[in-house]
Nucleic acid binder design. Structure first.
Length: 471
RNA sequence: GCAGGCGUAGCUCAGCUGGUUAGAGCGCCGGAUUGUGGAUCCGGAGGUCGGUGGUUCGACCCCACCCGCCUGUACCA
C-alpha cells in the first residue's frame, strides 16, 4: 500500500536548456541592440506563431517514411498536422502570401524568436534556439542584398565588434554551378560536392579533398563515402579556393550579382575588409537561388572546455526567389539574413558582453514586516531594485540568501535601529573583502563588517551615495 | 542514421581477480552561535548501483538485449 511512488527524474529533454538571469540579461541587450539598428533602417517588426501547418512550412507530412524528419510535429484535433517552425523564413513566406495585396513592396521586416529543430544536438547546437532575421521581399535588386549585408555590419559594430573582428562573406549559387559545370561534375553529384566544399572551415583542404574523392575516416574511425570525383576534377574545384583573385578568372556573367553587391557596398563605405567574396560559402542546398551570405567572427573564443577556437559563422542567408511562389504561383523575389542569436551571444559573452543588471537591495525581515515592505517600496520609488525578504529564516540565513541572490546591499531595521529612529545598511561586497582577514567567529560576528547606521529618513540618500559609481 | 565511449546520492566521482550492512567530497537540513554573510566542528536526511533477462552458492562488478547520456561523423530548411 505504502509503496514508494516512482518519482520522475528531474531532467531536461536533450538539446533543450534552462537559461538563467545572467544569460537572459546579456541576450536582452544583444537583441535590443540589433533591433535598434534594424529599426533605424526602416525595417518593421513581425511576429508569427510558433506553430504552423506542416505543409505551409514546406515539410513532408510526418508519416510512415519520414516521421518528424527534422521538425517537431503533432496532429491537431481536426486531424491536421502542425509543426513548430524550424526557421523564420518559411513563416514569412506564408505571411507574405497570405497578405500579399496589402503589404508595401518591397516589404522589409525583421523578426526575432525561438525556432525548433528535431535533430541530434551537439556542442553549441540545440533543438531550441533563437534567430534574428531581416528579410526584404519583393525586390530583385542587388540593392536589397547589399542593404542587408551593410545592416548586419552595423549591427555587429553596435554590439562592440571592431573592424577586422568580423567579415561578411558573399558567394553565389550560380557561380558555384558554373564552376561545377566547368569541372564536368555530373548533376547527380552536385549535392555531395557542395556539401564537401561546405566543410572547408572544419576539415581543411585535406578533408575536403578526401570527401570530394573516395571519402574520409573520422576520429572515431567511421568512414564517410566521398563524392567520387577524379583528381583532375578535384584540383579544378580546389583552385577556386586558391586565392582572392579567383573570381576574376571566372565567367563574369556568373559573378555579376556578387559584383553588383560588392560595388554597391564598397561605394557606401563597406569595403572588402567587411564584405567580401568567398567561394567556400554554401549555406545548405534547398531554397537559395542566387547570392548566399555568411557573417563570420575572426577572433579566437575560449569555449566551455577551455579550448581556443575560431568561432566562425554567426549569421547566414541569401536570396530565395521561389519561396512565396509555393503558395501563390507567382514568383516573388526575396532575400534575407538570419543572425544566430545564441551563437553570437556565446561568442560575445566570452569577451565580456553582459547585460548590466541594476544592483539589488534586500531588506531583511526583522520583526516588523510592514516596515521592511515600506523600506523596500521607498527604495523602489527612488528607482532602485529592492526586495523585502519574504521567507521565514532568521537573520544569518537571510544574509546568506542575500549573498546567494547577488544582492549588493542589505538593509536592516531591527529593534535597536527602530528604537533610535535609525536603519542599518550593509555593503555585501565590501563585507566579503573584510571577511578574508577575519580569523575567529567572535571577531566576524562582532565586526558588523562594512555596515553603517543612518537616520531612518536618510535611507534613500545613503543608498544612493553607496551605489554611486566611483569616479 | 553510423562509429566510439560512458551510466553508482541533488552534483562530481571512488568501489579490489564477483563475497554479504555501497563510500567520499561538495551541496542540503539541524546544532555549536536570541540580530550579522566567511572559516571551523558535531549530527542528520538522501541510493530500485540506468532497465530487463542470464551465468553463479553469491552480481555494482561477468554475458546478452534494451534505454539514456557524451564525443565524432552523416543529414541540416
Amino acid at each position: 500500500m505504502s509503496q514508494k511512488p516512482s518519482r520522475p527524474k528531474a531532467r531536461l529533454p536533450r538539446g533543450f536548456r534552462d537559461r538563467e538571469a545572467g544569460e537572459i540579461a546579456a541576450e536582452r541587450t544583444l537583441i535590443e541592440t540589433i533591433r535598434r539598428v534594424y529599426e533605424s533602417y526602416g525595417f518593421s517588426p513581425l511576429e508569427t506563431p510558433a506553430f504552423e501547418y506542416t505543409d505551409a512550412l514546406g515539410k513532408f507530412l510526418p508519416d510512415v517514411d519520414r516521421p518528424n524528419e527534422g521538425v517537431f510535429s503533432l496532429k491537431d484535433d481536426d486531424e491536421q498536422w502542425l509543426s513548430l517552425r524550424y526557421d523564420l523564413t518559411a513563416p514569412l513566406a506564408r505571411y507574405v502570401a497570405e497578405n500579399f495585396q496589402t503589404l508595401p513592396k518591397p516589404f522589409r521586416r525583421y523578426q526575432v524568436g525561438p525556432v525548433w529543430r528535431n535533430e541530434k544536438p551537439g556542442p553549441g547546437r540545440f533543438r531550441e534556439f533563437t534567430q534574428f532575421d531581416a528579410d526584404t521581399v519583393g525586390s530583385n535588386s542587388p540593392a536589397a542584398d547589399a542593404e542587408l549585408l551593410m545592416m548586419v555590419c552595423d549591427a555587429l559594430e553596435a554590439l562592440g565588434l571592431k573592424r577586422g573582428e568580423y567579415v561578411v562573406k558573399v558567394n553565389s549559387r550560380k557561380l558555384l554551378d558554373g564552376v561545377l559545370q566547368a569541372a564536368n561534375v555530373e548533376p547527380a553529384r552536385r549535392g555531395a560536392v557542395l556539401r564537401a566544399i561546405d566543410k572547408f572551415d572544419r576539415l581543411g583542404e585535406g578533408g575536403v579533398r578526401a570527401l570530394l574523392g573516395e571519402g574520409r575516416k573520422d576520429e572515431s574511425g567511421d568512414f564517410t563515402k566521398g563524392a567520387g570525383l577524379n583528381n583532375e576534377q578535384i584540383t579544378s574545384i580546389m583552385t577556386l579556393f586558391a586565392g582572392a583573385g579567383a573570381i576574376a578568372e571566372l565567367d563574369q556573367n556568373l559573378a555579376e550579382d556578387i559584383a553588383a553587391i560588392q560595388a554597391l557596398a564598397s561605394r557606401s563605405g563597406y569595403a572588402e575588409d567587411r564584405i567580401t567574396f568567398d567561394a567556400g560559402i554554401i549555406r545548405g542546398l534547398e531554397y537559395y537561388t542566387g547570392p548566399v551570405f555568411e557573417a563570420q567572427l575572426r577572433f579566437p573564443v575560449t569555449n566551455e572546455a577551455g579550448e581556443t577556437v575560431v568561432f566562425g559563422s554567426v549569421a547566414g542567408g541569401g536570396r530565395y526567389d521561389d519561396l512565396v511562389a509555393r503558395f501563390t504561383g507567382q514568383q516573388v523575389p526575396a532575400t534575407g539574413i538570419s543572425i544566430g542569436v545564441s551563437r553570437l551571444l556565446a561568442a560575445l559573452r566570452s569577451r565580456g558582453l553582459t547585460g548590466k543588471d541594476q544592483p539589488l537591495i534586500v531588506v531583511l525581515a526583522m520583526g516588523d514586516t510592514a516596515r521592511s515592505f515600506a523600506a523596500a517600496r521607498e527604495l523602489r520609488a527612488a528607482g532602485f531594485r529592492a526586495e523585502a525578504y519574504v521567507g521565514t529564516k532568521k537573520v544569518p540565513d537571510q544574509l546568506k540568501y542575500a549573498d546567494k541572490h547577488g544582492a549588493a546591499l542589505v538593509v536592516m531595521e531591527g529593534d535597536d535601529e527602530r528604537a533610535g529612529g535609525k536603519i542599518a545598511i550593509k555593503d555585501l561586497k565590501r563585507g566579503a573583502e573584510v571577511a578574508k582577514t577575519v580569523e575567529t567567529r567572535a571577531e566576524w560576528v562582532g565586526a558588523r563588517a562594512a555596515q553603517e547606521t543612518v537616520e531612518r529618513d536618510r535611507l534613500v540618500e545613503k543608498v544612493r551615495d553607496i551605489l554611486a559609481p566611483k569616479a
